[in-house]
Design a protein around this nucleic acid. Structure first.
Lengths: 224, 224
DNA sequence: CCGTATCCTAAGGCTTGCCAAAACAATCGC
DNA sequence: GCGATTGTTTTGGCAAGCCTTAGGATACGG
């Protein structure tokens, strides 16, 4: 046992937070390895290798043909990394003026080289923000989340009101729905449900149709 | 030629800035490969390999048995990286309250994952600082240095007057010399040179003896 | 309940960056 | 000027992470 206690490489961390965010975004557990592979843009074989390695180290549970679930250790590590990412994201967006997407992208590199105590100081400097630049909750220094868990808009029933916490779509789709007023912070009401899980919604008084893929990227909470 | 224009790995960047700071700190050129190896704590063989690789790519000139010198390209890259390091260093020290040494250590990781435009925004956010947390000049976004190059006090001859730009010592030594008036901004005169490179100096009219290790940490410029 | 499509696993390779050993070349001090 | 020290180069290896190929296992739809 000559190994470091906090020995997670950047790659390993990326796998852990990919699984964590998948769960955060409402994917049912266990998370399929193929989904992890797609998210990280690596081959299924590579993802499988890494998943087995992380399972062997106790960071996650792996059920072949079913998927992976974070262990307590894995959840802790993932929370720490996501905390760092989102704190940097807030700094880059609020203080340096980067777009949310860009801030997230840059923060994704910074997160792996930020010691925990620096993250704590950064949090204090920023006034203890609770959500990252794209609306995701920022875990506290113990890895806990103190703000409401977001729900996917395609899980919300007709008639319900929600606040938009995050719009997690690719740039093109993000810009598209953004132009209609679907941005973090806004209030939204589901007017009706389509056949495929698509949603008819009301934002800023305007009516709008969101296809299932779009609705799935809109994360909402009861109130912001 | 399917290669990226700005394709320098973290390792390559570390080699380039190690050479750049060696020159900055007054090492005569060319810088011996053995010195690079020691600074980076790698074997001579490894340093030699990398140096030849960087020379082949045009980042530096390598004269076997003599050492390396930065090419124009190499100098440019090294300046960019050092700019990022020192800007982060200022942020970590001034805004988050890290010690200068710690700030530098953390910044050393951040520098490799910071895009140039983010560095520019960071510089603006910080008010365009001209020196890093340990007194080294911050190159501007073109890689040029607009402030006087600092000199180590143990390189200054007897009789010379200087202004103190930085005191780069650990906390204990910093407090010790600080009590004698050796603080950034002060004027200092070298009265005499000891056998080991130690210095007898005058600050605020008082005479003081600085051992070589202390004198090496006092960075001075002609005038501030 | 069976076949297709997905997933798993093993085997072998590539790249980067590091290492040690060994043989050779050059520099420097005396 | 010569020998000891230092530097160079080649060879071979290791670890991490990714890849492809290929074949075996499972699951799900019809």
């Amino acid at each position: 046992m000559t190994q470091n206690a906090t020995a997670t490489s950047e790659s390993e961390e990326m796998y852990l937070i990919t699984i964590a965010t998948a769960i955060e975004d409402g994917h049912s557990e266990p998370v399929p390895v193929s989904h992890v592979a797609k998210s990280l843009d690596v081959s299924g074989v590579s993802a499988n290798q890494m998943v087995r390695k992380l399972a062997a180290r106790g960071y996650l549970d792996y059920e072949p043909y079913r998927g992976v679930t974070l262990s307590e250790d894995g959840r802790r590590v993932a929370s720490e990394i996501l905390r760092r990412r989102r704190l940097w994201g807030v700094f880059l967006k609020e203080r340096l003026g980067l777009t949310p997407v860009r801030a997230d992208a840059v923060a994704c590199d910074l997160e792996h080289v930020t010691p925990g105590d620096v993250a704590d100081l950064l949090s204090g400097f920023l006034g203890g923000p609770e959500r990252g630049p794209r609306g995701k909750a920022i875990p506290d220094s113990s890895g806990d989340i103190s703000v409401p868990i977001a729900e996917r808009l395609d899980d919300v029933a007709a008639g319900e009101w929600r606040s938009i916490a995050t719009v997690d779509l690719d740039n093109e789709a993000l810009a598209f729905v953004g132009r209609q007023g679907v941005v973090p912070g806004g209030r939204i009401q589901v007017l009706g449900v389509g056949a495929d899980g698509d949603r008819f919604v009301s934002v800023d008084g305007a009516c709008l149709h969101l296809a299932t893929e779009l609705a799935a990227g809109v994360l909402v909470v009861d109130s912001l």
